[in-house]
């Protein structure tokens, strides 16, 4: 199942990038797809974490939501940068990640880093160390809105 999905993904990638559809090029693409799948299999890279197929439908709603969050916090950071007084108050806090799987925690940590104004500097099990540009950002994170959203995403919604 995972091999098939990875293979389809890679082959689609090849087709999208090449743009020439002659028999020769498609054969080469199929061969290199097989080679890549074999390498991934040999490296044992295909498990829940490496190829999380069960999360696919979640991404369809999760990423638009994340982009909206990025836009909001990006605007906040922009206002701070353009403010002549540069009102920053850098904060380091520990945040508890409520996700159950490693892929969920990684998604949460990456989402924190992606939104401007907060970034994950350390992960230790379920404890994330987060650096925030302003105190308010750290407090927002502590409230756990994003944590709940990622937990919902983890369940495949």
């Amino acid at each position: 199942m995972r091999y098939v999905s990875l293979g389809l993904l890679l082959f689609g990638f090849w087709l999208a990038l090449s743009g020439h559809y002659t028999a020769f090029l498609i054969t080469i693409g199929a061969l290199s797809t097989l080679f890549c799948v074999a390498v991934a299999r040999r490296a044992n890279a295909l498990d829940d974490e490496g190829q999380p197929v069960h999360l696919f439908f979640g991404t369809l709603t999760y990423y638009p939501w994340l982009m909206w969050e990025i836009a909001k916090s990006g605007w906040t950071v922009t206002k701070i940068i353009l403010n002549p007084r540069l009102p920053i108050s850098p904060t380091m806090i520990k945040v508890r990640a409520g996700q159950k799987t490693a892929a969920g925690i990684a998604t949460y940590a990456n989402s924190i880093t992606l939104t401007p104004g907060t970034m994950t500097v350390g992960v230790d099990g379920h404890d994330l160390t987060v650096h925030a540009l302003v105190r308010e950002g750290a407090l927002d994170l502590k409230e756990g809105g994003m944590d709940r959203r990622v937990r919902r995403f983890e369940k495949g919604l």
Binding site: I70, I81, L86, T113, L114
Partner: peptide, 24 residues
Amino acid sequence: GMVGLVRMPELYTRMHAASVTDTL
């Protein structure tokens, strides 16, 4: 974002500014 990269006082705050460029 790049103005922030130049203006911010130290490394970690600069990284926040650079992420405005990279994402938004």
